[in-house]
Design a protein around this nucleic acid. Structure first.
Lengths: 244, 244
DNA sequence: GAGCGAAAGTGGTCTTGACCACTAGTTGAC
DNA sequence: GTCAACTAGTGGTCAAGACCACTTTCGCTC
């Protein structure tokens, strides 16, 4: 899935160490201990402060946890919590800001196992992956990666993306109407690639949104992953009467 | 407002430096430059890596921004974005987890200017400030600071807080019914105090919730500030038909 | 076998120093 | 007045090292 890599070719030692540690995490269970910092630093050929900086990141991201005097351990996964939301453009307009959107990349790929599962298609089926920036008053506020089964859109030209929303294209081409969806929101920190696109420092607090949307015929029509700047964003919820 | 301090008496150099910089920020405008790192380090009597660690935090929190080769500047404030939400206990129960709540502190204070404004009372009016932990299966998931005008609750005993929700107390004592509210959600990182209460490392990603709730008579009955663990939480939204 | 103290191991904090990469300001030539 | 080159300033990355504080393990004694 594009947008997830945290080593965007800069190849500095921190990035390389991070890759290495993430690779090792694949082979570990929750609760397993990593080698000690001194040992890992030696093994990976970096200084201990450099290693610690990377482990600091992974701890902040909830992947690792440290215990003073004991060790560094693989952390436990997350819990879900529900709520609802309106669209970016609508919100920006309501705030007297001019919403904008810019496609920075789009390509067609085989779905693969994970994305195939999310979209409920075969892993070999093709998927459009569209990378867009969401702007308000010409400032980048969010990055969005839209994944849509190719069979729903057929061949696609960049101009079509600029001139129409995905939902409009679905309606026009396939007579498909959006019915419902599920979205998750997590706090995160920006990767180097995300930081560059958003114009913020690396490892800044941010919102990570992931949304799976279903048509009224019951099929999954998109999976969207977005990163919203935490320095320029907060969510506001209108609370309903008879709060529990 | 309790819970905001990020130096909980540990008094290490990073905490002291952080206080000092935050103090200086009070006198600066958005866009103003801080003194250079080398200069600040000398002025504050710390090493440059130590200073940088603190500035890293403040950058992550969206208070400062750095430009390579240019300087460190006061960052711009945030934008709002709306949505809605259900209660902690309800969610935990739905997930097959046992919700719990524990009062760790409660005291009566004069509101002060800021809190007075939020609660629409005089700054000299008294306010109950109740600090609670929210637990699921005996693990702390969130910290909550409830601020309520004293005149709504009168004198309060700890057992009353444990045996009743605030809303029940309002109904019983004042015949007040909750009508609506506004809540904001931001990504943040945990302070040392919050980290200790939550049992997570300092500067871990977390959700910061702030909620102001109004009765059907139109008066503000509470201001609540909560920090939810980002490593054990994500928000899930059910999206409505006809997404815009 | 249990308990206690010491040692060894762990993470946490800080310093000094070096060097890289970027930006902004200054100066000189045209 | 403009432009290019240079310099000085900025942040960014990394290393080596020391020492503190906590936890775990081991060895010895009872």
């Amino acid at each position: 899935m594009t947008g997830l890599a945290n080593t965007n070719g800069r190849g500095n030692k921190q990035a390389l160490v991070r890759d290495e540690i993430l690779g090792r995490l694949d082979d570990l269970q929750v609760g397993d201990a990593l080698p000690s910092e001194r040992r890992l630093a030696t093994e990976l050929g970096v200084s201990r402060p450099t290693l610690r900086a990377v482990i600091d990141e992974l701890v902040r991201e909830g992947l690792l946890l440290r215990r003073h005097g004991s060790g560094t351990y693989v952390a436990e996964p997350k819990i879900a919590l529900p709520l609802t939301m309106t669209s970016f453009s609508e919100d920006m307009t309501r705030r007297g800001m001019r919403p904008g959107s810019r496609v920075v990349d789009f390509q067609c790929l085989a779905a693969g196992a994970k994305l195939g599962q999310r979209l409920q298609i075969s892993p070999v089926d093709e998927v459009w992956v569209i990378t867009r920036l969401r702007l308000a008053d010409d400032e980048t506020m969010a990055i969005e990666w839209l994944h849509a089964p190719r069979r729903l859109l057929g061949d696609l030209r960049r101009e079509e993306l600029s001139d129409h929303s995905y939902y409009e294209l679905l309606r026009e081409r396939q007579a498909i109407t959006i019915a419902s969806g599920v979205q998750t929101i997590e706090p995160t920190v920006t990767s180097p690639e995300e930081a560059e696109l958003l114009g913020v420092p690396v490892h800044s607090p941010a919102f990570l949104f992931e949304r799976t949307t279903t048509s009224d015929g019951g099929e999954v029509v998109e999976f969207v992953r977005s990163v919203y700047r935490g320095d320029r964003y907060r969510l506001v919820t209108e609370l309903r009467p008879a709060l529990r």
